[in-house]
Simulated assay, not measured.
Amino acid sequence: MSTIEKVQEKFLEEEAVGVNNEIVLHNDDVNTFDHVIDTLVRVCKHDDLQAEQCALLVHYKGKCTVKTGPIDELKPQWLGLIDAGLSAEII
């Protein structure tokens, strides 16, 4: 087995073990940019610029991944987004 094959095999193993979930925020016609930005800062610990960029992506693309990680870490943040009236899912 060549070095390249060994590296690729190791990468695939690590990728399978470290699979993360995502919180995907969806666009809606209800929430303001300011509310979305403030909520992302408060709930997901985004800085102002990151939250603004996510809000713009959601607005123009319809959705945006706002956080990745293990499900047990994402669930409280997802609930915080839902409680704030945002449309989000964990995938």
Score class of each variant (00 low, 15 high):
residue 32 T to K: 08
residue 80 G to H: 04
residue 33 F to N: 09
residue 20 N to R: 12
residue 7 V to L: 13
residue 83 D to N: 11
residue 11 F to N: 11
residue 84 A to K: 06
residue 53 Q to W: 01
residue 80 G to W: 01
residue 16 A to R: 15
residue 72 D to R: 03
residue 12 L to V: 13
residue 49 L to T: 00
residue 50 Q to V: 04
residue 25 L to Y: 07
residue 81 L to G: 03
residue 4 I to K: 07
residue 20 N to A: 11
residue 35 H to K: 13
residue 69 G to K: 07
residue 68 T to S: 08
residue 6 K to G: 12
residue 13 E to D: 12
residue 77 Q to P: 02
residue 27 N to G: 03
residue 46 H to S: 06
residue 85 G to D: 10
residue 88 A to M: 13
residue 85 G to F: 02
residue 29 D to W: 15
residue 51 A to S: 06
residue 82 I to N: 06
residue 33 F to E: 07
residue 65 T to P: 03
residue 17 V to E: 14
residue 66 V to W: 01
residue 55 A to G: 01
residue 64 C to D: 04
residue 87 S to N: 15
residue 39 T to Y: 02
residue 77 Q to L: 14
residue 62 G to C: 02
residue 39 T to V: 06
residue 52 E to T: 04
residue 73 E to T: 05
residue 58 V to I: 04
residue 9 E to D: 09
residue 65 T to D: 07
residue 11 F to W: 09
residue 28 D to G: 09
residue 80 G to Y: 02
residue 79 L to F: 10
residue 89 E to L: 11
residue 63 K to E: 15
residue 37 I to M: 10
residue 82 I to W: 11
residue 2 S to K: 12
residue 72 D to S: 05
residue 15 E to T: 15
residue 28 D to Q: 09
residue 7 V to T: 06
residue 26 H to G: 12
residue 8 Q to S: 14
residue 65 T to M: 01
residue 77 Q to N: 11
residue 27 N to C: 06
residue 79 L to S: 08
residue 81 L to N: 04
residue 74 L to C: 12
residue 14 E to C: 14
residue 6 K to A: 15
residue 9 E to S: 11
residue 8 Q to C: 13
residue 30 V to R: 11
residue 60 Y to T: 06
residue 5 E to K: 10
residue 50 Q to H: 01
residue 25 L to R: 07
residue 76 P to G: 06
residue 54 C to W: 07
residue 70 P to C: 05
residue 22 E to Y: 09
residue 29 D to S: 11
residue 70 P to S: 10
residue 26 H to D: 12
residue 53 Q to A: 00
residue 26 H to F: 15
residue 56 L to D: 04
residue 23 I to V: 08
residue 7 V to H: 08
residue 16 A to K: 15
residue 89 E to P: 10
residue 39 T to N: 05
residue 41 V to N: 00
residue 82 I to E: 07
residue 71 I to N: 05
residue 29 D to A: 08
residue 83 D to Y: 07
residue 13 E to M: 07
residue 46 H to V: 00
residue 21 N to K: 12
residue 52 E to P: 01
residue 45 K to A: 05
residue 76 P to Q: 11
residue 87 S to M: 14
residue 59 H to M: 06
residue 49 L to C: 00
residue 81 L to Y: 03
residue 86 L to F: 06
residue 67 K to W: 02
residue 12 L to A: 13
residue 42 R to E: 06
residue 34 D to F: 05
residue 46 H to M: 09
residue 13 E to H: 09
residue 90 I to M: 11
residue 65 T to F: 00
residue 4 I to G: 00
residue 70 P to N: 07
residue 20 N to T: 10
residue 16 A to L: 14
residue 43 V to K: 01
residue 13 E to G: 12
residue 27 N to H: 10
residue 43 V to N: 00
residue 89 E to C: 13
residue 67 K to N: 03
residue 61 K to E: 03
residue 10 K to E: 07
residue 86 L to M: 14
residue 30 V to A: 10
residue 32 T to F: 05
residue 83 D to G: 05
residue 53 Q to V: 01
residue 29 D to E: 12
residue 53 Q to S: 02
residue 20 N to M: 12
